[in-house]
Write a protein that binds this DNA or RNA. Structure first.
Length: 397
DNA sequence: TCTGGGGTCCTAGGACCC
DNA sequence: TCTGGGGTCCTAGGACCC
């Protein structure tokens, strides 16, 4: 079994190879990022000096990805752009182009599927593959097949990728990080103590900042130290499910299968404003944004052929606290007006005193459009009354 | 001048039903 | 008079991932 990681390179701008470049910044466009864009010519003709620098960037946003030369300055994914500008002001900043990433994502997954049909999609640049029944999958512990995949992907897309091969998904994912970029790592069961136990707990997929912090308070820094703790002690301190899970992963145990198909649970759209907006002062602007988000979610549902019946909203206040409200309606819908109307009821139940920096709209409890489930009348949501609106200074929607 | 957008899963309380 | 559980659905928040 194998985990797989591919990183998008700066294919379109070969002249930027080897330079510190960050990609991020949300709604910006390429032509905003490139000053003095030359008439005609190809992208490769754009002189390096024409690209915008991080020090000139103003506004909100985070880094989506960064080149290795940029990472040497300490910048990396999810870091705020303003903070990154302090660390590496001379870095070139490019806007994200999700449409292009999706095209490359589809292309590299297609290559894999032709060789190894048991593939689990883990997002735009990651997949798990079950090597077990792929011809040649067991040779060299999987190294031959990994090499073959790497080459096929590079030939077709120009993308490099890092691959980890291990007895299960948990270890394969960690192994894929050993040898980046464009490396292959094979980890056998017997390598647990030598290769996995020295790693920080944070490297385990599923141990995030909070759990890591708590583990540190107990003096547990590495996977090995986690493995040394008593299973019952972990359960007593982290709860039945989490404690038992921590014990299993620290011993390298993971029996999750590679899941090749899954249905979406929810679809959502959200946006962070250029500046904080207030429910009273910026009522018109906020209302227009809200309507647009509802239309976008509706279009997403329709394009993908789903309907949903739990409509929700999400706010992020200026202090970064998040509030969500949702309401389940009687019939499945993919209609923008219905979503907007139900979302409006949700907004009436949430405090709106503080300035807002983000608004989101979500539709959950999905069913395939036209399926028996989607068409059946449902009593759910009828016999329950929605919570009373809280008292707010602004009741707008 | 900190901190995006799109997701999944889990927990926990209350309503409601049997 | 007081006292039951189990199960499902809904809602809000939070951790985590890519």
């Amino acid at each position: 079994m194998d985990a797989f990681y591919a990183s998008v390179e700066l294919l379109r701008y070969p002249q930027l190879k080897g330079l510190p470049v960050v990609i991020g910044g949300g709604r910006r466009r390429v032509d905003e990022a490139i000053r003095n864009l030359p008439e005609g010519g190809t992208l490769a003709d754009i002189p390096v000096d024409a690209f915008a620098r991080l020090k000139d960037y103003t506004g909100r946003g985070v880094i989506t990805t960064a080149t290795y030369p940029a990472r040497q300055f300490g910048v990396g994914s999810a870091m705020g752009l303003m903070k990154a500008a302090k660390l590496c002001p001379q870095a070139i900043i490019l806007p994200v182009d999700f449409d292009e990433y999706r095209r490359y994502s589809r292309a590299f997954k297609q290559i894999i599927l032709e060789v190894a049909p048991l593939m689990e999609d883990r997002g735009v640049d990651e997949v798990y593959i079950d090597f077990t029944d792929v011809p040649g999958g067991q040779r060299d512990g999987g190294r031959s097949l990994a090499r073959l995949l790497q080459k096929a992907i590079f030939d077709a897309t120009g993308l490099t990728c890092s691959i980890g091969v291990a007895p299960n998904k948990l270890i394969a994912k960690m192994a894929s990080e050993f040898n980046k970029p464009n490396g292959i790592s094979i980890v056998y069961e017997d390598d647990l103590e030598k290769l996995i136990w020295p790693l920080p707990c944070r490297k385990v997929n599923g141990i995030g900042p909070k759990a890591d912090e708590k583990l540190k308070r107990f003096g547990i820094e590495t996977v090995g130290q986690l493995a040394a703790r008593d299973r019952d002690w972990l359960i007593a301190n982290f709860g039945k499910a989490t404690g038992a899970w921590m014990h299993e992963v620290s011993w390298g145990r993971d029996d999750r299968p590679v899941v090749t198909e899954s249905e979406p649970v929810s679809m959502s759209r959200e946006t962070t404003f250029e500046r904080d907006l207030h429910a009273v002062r910026d009522r018109a602007e906020l209302g227009a944004i809200f309507t647009r988000l509802c239309e976008q979610v509706a279009a997403d549902l329709q394009r993908k052929g789903y309907v949903g019946k739990t409509i929700g909203i999400k706010l992020r206040y200026d202090d970064f606290r998040i509030a969500t409200r949702d309401q389940t309606i009687e019939r499945f819908t993919d209609d923008a007006k219905t979503i907007r109307q139900t979302g409006g009821l949700c907004l009436k139940r949430v405090p709106l005193e503080r300035p807002l920096r983000l608004l989101g709209v979500r539709v959950g409890t999905l069913a395939k459009a036209g399926s028996p489930e989607a068409l059946a009348p449902s009593g759910a949501g009828t016999h329950r009354t929605a919570a009373e609106p809280v008292a707010t200074t602004a009741s707008l929607f």
